[in-house]
Amino acid sequence: MKLYLVLFAVILLFSNNVNAQKENIQKEALLVGVFHFNNPGADLAKTETFDVMSKKSQQELELITDHIKKFRPTKIFVEWEYDNQPALDTLYNRYLKGTYFSYVQDKFPGNTFYAQNEIFQLVFRAGKKAGLEKIYAIDYPMDWPYDSLQIAIQKAGQTGLQQEIDKQIKEFGEQTNALMKKLTLTQLLLEENKTSTRNFNLGFYITLLNKGGALHDFTGADVVNAWYKRNLYMYSLIQKLSEEKNERIMIIAGSGHVAVFKQFIAIDRNYKAVELSDILKN
């Protein structure tokens, strides 16, 4: 009994020390999960493209990035392939010089990605206002064996599971499209970063995909593993590139990625999470 009490006291002391360290951390990470402003249609849920080029959306982007400037980010990380950093540097340097949009219009005629994507509309704008000379790429694309999962589900006779997966994907797309019709850009971004939205996103992987396949077939777990592995690689890049003390980093990526990053930060003793809703209140 005495040994049990001693162990409990040690665990409690360690937990309190960790929590105290967490509270004293000066390195802050502003998390901004986004929907893709220029929708490539690559996600499972098919959603419409929101008009970020409208006058109202442009005004909101100016206001949002004004608030980000007050946060004073020292580094900004984005969902761009990490081994293609030189291309991102070229584009951002053009943006800083004021020649970006004419440059991409001539170089990529008819390609709306370079005009509308969140990296160029939100991140570049925020980076320039914050006086940053560089934006950091952290994406690490990997094969995601979702097609193999569907085959495994079919072989296992998991008809009900497949129906529920299809149903949730469809409903998510319909709900997102409905919100895009009635909410402003700022409201949509706040919605993307709600705890309930993040938990629903993460729950889809664990509740449904993870159990796909027959008893000794772990294709479902492999799919979930591939998703977490990609995000672990991305987070590893963030950690390696933000080593200075008292740094205020900003991470802008698809809301699914940011939902996972929030989990990582909750147990990473080097960071304290800051939400978009926090800085918009100031």
Rank of each mutant, 00 (worst) to 15 (best):
E60G: 12
N84F: 04
E48H: 09
I64V: 13
A42W: 06
Q59D: 14
K46W: 07
L63I: 12
K70G: 01
K55L: 11
N93I: 00
F101P: 02
S57N: 07
T99C: 03
K70I: 11
G98A: 10
D51K: 11
G98R: 07
L96T: 04
R72S: 07
Y92L: 05
K46L: 15
L91D: 05
D51Q: 13
N93F: 03
L44H: 06
G98P: 04
K75M: 05
I76A: 06
F71L: 12
Q85G: 02
Y82H: 08
N84H: 09
A87K: 09
H67E: 12
E81W: 01
L91M: 12
L88E: 00
I68D: 02
L96H: 03
D66R: 10
E62A: 15
I64E: 06
K69P: 08
D51W: 12
A45V: 08
M53V: 10
K46Y: 09
D89K: 02
L63N: 10
D51N: 15
F71K: 13
L44R: 02
F71N: 10
D43K: 02
K55Y: 10
S54L: 11
F77Q: 00
T65A: 09
F101T: 10
P86Q: 10
A45W: 12
V78I: 07
Q58M: 12
L96M: 11
M53H: 10
Y100G: 02
V78E: 00
F71G: 06
D51E: 14
F50C: 05
F101V: 07
K56V: 14
V52D: 09
E60Q: 15
K56P: 04
I64T: 02
M53S: 15
F77P: 00
F101A: 13
R94E: 11
E48N: 15
T74A: 03
L96V: 05
F50H: 08
L88K: 00
E62F: 09
D83F: 01
W80M: 00
L44Q: 08
E62Y: 08
L61N: 05
K69T: 03
V52T: 10
L88G: 00
E62L: 13
P73N: 07
Y92H: 05
D83M: 06
E60S: 12
A42Q: 10
K55Q: 14
E79S: 01
Q59N: 15
L91W: 02
K70L: 14
K56A: 13
L61H: 04
E81V: 01
Y95R: 03
K46P: 06
T74R: 01
E48S: 14
S57T: 08
K46F: 10
E81Q: 02
Q58N: 13
T90S: 14
N84C: 04
S102L: 09
I64G: 05
